[in-house]
Design a binder for these strands. Structure first.
Lengths: 244, 244
DNA sequence: TTATTTGATTTGTGATCACACTTGCATTGA
DNA sequence: TCAATGCAAGTGTGATCACAAATCAAATAA
């Protein structure tokens, strides 16, 4: 029908952009999302529409829509000045985020534990090797790759939980805790060893055994670590910097 | 200049809208949000930007931003046609939503159980009276008022949980389950008695006793009811309407 | 009659413009 | 010297326009 005519009249153009031509607005949204999860923006940093539009080489229109969406996800914050910024880190907010993540991601991994196929388990198992590989040449602390790999590992599991409701909520939580995590990972690198691989190994073992409770506990230990670390760091700073 | 002259020439107008002039976009967003939670849109209904702009007496600009925000909250659905619609009801989605609501709202009420002030408990207790009052003159089934009152009751409790992370998630869940709930309440009204007040009374009793476990159980019973009812209704329809 | 094509209308998307408000800086006054 | 006023640049918001894609309808051909 209409599709047939389009195919007949211009099959080549249809081939070039066959399925879902992505809109500029989606591209901008994904870009900002990735930057936020990766912690490329600093907490309390203010973002301007025109500034981002220039940086992303587009007009203001897609940017303002993307910012609006990120604000509703609480990934950004709308100030009364009508300007938007990355939410600042506070101890209360960190505890709040961690509690929500334990609750929801814990539920997701428990669901996934009984649903993951051996194919999917093999996938996350293969990801463990990349940590060792990265540790081998760790003269350069590649924080970006750490963040990316960690994200891929977790969401490969969460996707298996089979809940179209929980997964977007987890994405929103990662978006909100992104800036904190980046700060924590930097602090980690200074402090000592990055033993993410160990925690992930424990998770994989539990998933392979289809042990939901064990998997949940291992996950809680994994995601709590950067938060508790950053918490002690912030408390120490607050103690010595009360004057500020 | 333009501002100074405006302020000097018309200080009274400045008084009338002094503090937070709300943007049109926020008004549109709130409006659509209320309509969705209240179930004023039917599942699978498609919404057009220009149509809503006309209905809300504004241009397309605020509407498209509001729609974008609602899509990221999964309150609306973006079709590959680039048109948006209210997500259709499926059994899988209903179960998914109910599980998430039990998980998150259950946690919120458990937190609130230990934090509610006697002032807040008095508030929700006073809300019980409104149910009786409404039942007294229930010749006309006022679904809108039921929805509003139910929402006010629950969120008065959730607000007390003290989590700036959980509450937006609960709002998102209500947004997503709004269309289902409306259908369920209509079915309720046909089927028989609306005994929401009984469930709410049990909740208030648990909150007054600061019994987190009891409160969670009572809440689960309350929010599960419309879902299980609608579920059986949908299953019956699916059984007899396989041909369709 | 039915299927196909073609043209008109509708719709989303992106860009641009106009306006109001905020912010920051410089000039002016005490 | 310091505070206050006034001006200018910057920013968000809303409206409008231009364009491409989709949808619908009528007309035509098989």
């Amino acid at each position: 029908m209409q599709k047939a005519t389009a195919d007949k009249s211009d099959p080549i153009a249809a081939q070039l952009a066959p399925v879902g031509r992505e809109t500029v607005q989606d591209r901008v949204y994904s870009e900002l999302r990735r930057a936020l999860i990766g912690g490329l923006f600093e907490p309390s940093q203010v973002l301007t529409i025109r500034g981002l539009a220039d940086a992303l080489m587009t007009s203001t229109m897609p940017v303002r829509e993307a910012l609006g969406r990120l604000i509703t996800e609480k990934a950004l914050e709308a100030l009364p000045n009508r300007s938007v910024r990355v939410p600042p880190i506070t101890l209360e907010r960190m505890d709040d985020l961690l509690r929500a993540r334990i609750l929801i991601e814990g539920e997701a991994i428990a669901l996934a534990a009984t649903r993951m196929t051996s194919r999917q388990i093999a996938t996350i198992e293969s990801m463990l090797g990349e940590w060792d590989e990265m540790r081998a040449l760790k003269q350069k602390k590649d924080v970006d790759r750490e963040v990316t790999l960690n994200q891929a590992f977790h969401f490969e599991i969460y996707r298996a939980c089979g809940s179209a409701v929980l997964i977007p909520m987890i994405e929103s939580l990662w978006l909100q805790s992104g800036p904190c995590i980046r700060v924590a990972i930097y602090a980690f690198s200074d402090a000592g060893e990055v033993d993410t691989a160990h925690y992930h190994r424990t998770i994989v073992k539990a998933m392979a055994a289809q042990d939901a409770k064990e998997a949940r506990d291992a996950l809680v230990a994994d995601i709590s670590r950067p938060f508790t670390f950053l918490r002690s760091k912030l408390e120490a700073e607050a103690k010595k910097g009360i004057s500020a």
